[in-house]
Amino acid sequence: MLAIENLRVVYHDVISVLNGISLEVKEGEILIIIGANGAGKTTLLRSVAGMIDFYDGDIIEGDIKMEGSSIKGLDAADIMKRYGLTYVMEDRPVFWYLTIEENLGAASFSRWDKHVKTDMEEVYEYFAVLRSLRNKRAGYASGGEQQMLAIGMALMTKPKILLLDEPSLGLAPLITEELFSIIKKLNESGITIVLVEQNANAALNIGIRGYVIETGRIVLDGKAGELLENEDVREFYLGSGEKERKSYMDAKRYKRRKRWL
């Protein structure tokens, strides 16, 4: 469905963030992308969604294809309208000074049809909390409610493929669990999902396939279950290895890093 081929992205003409990344998203799956801070996960999503220009970044090599046709260089609004690709930015991208209902309305701006009201009801079905808060400003809602609203807003754009950038950022474990079960439900209703996460355990549990990226390259890929079992992923992203806990005497003074390639 979505294919990224050897993508290289540079910020401000000098900071190279993605160094030839290639990946593929199949229709109807939940794809998990995990990686450390600064690995280029957000940059990847921004380039796919057509928003890289806004952050003064450039795609200097490679191509992004959606259903076979290139979407490189298209405007964000165009990509959304033509290909049904919606990007939910990190850190709860809701409009703080608009009410929750207005937020949902603003998100449906790109479509001109009369089904907005029924779609709104559908969103309230998924996220029951939002219904009771509909006339409250989104800025006063809690973190979990804001994240649910952000996903609800993405649903208002009628996406075929949804890119989620760290939806669990700053949320309590229970809320995260609820959120992920909703994401799974959305996937079952036919939306392809690309999920970028720091919370690797929770994400890999709902995912079908997963990629690990580091310094702008894919370093590991496989079934989500396999990644969960993988020794290195367990040590670096899940915080537990098979090995015995080391004595602090053996701990080296520099931070341990692993080179994948």
Partner: peptide, 13 residues
């Protein structure tokens, strides 16, 4: 919406 945040508005089409 755009007045509040241009990048968020762009992301929602």
């Amino acid at each position: 919406a755009t007045s509040e945040d241009q990048s968020k508005a762009m992301a929602f089409g």
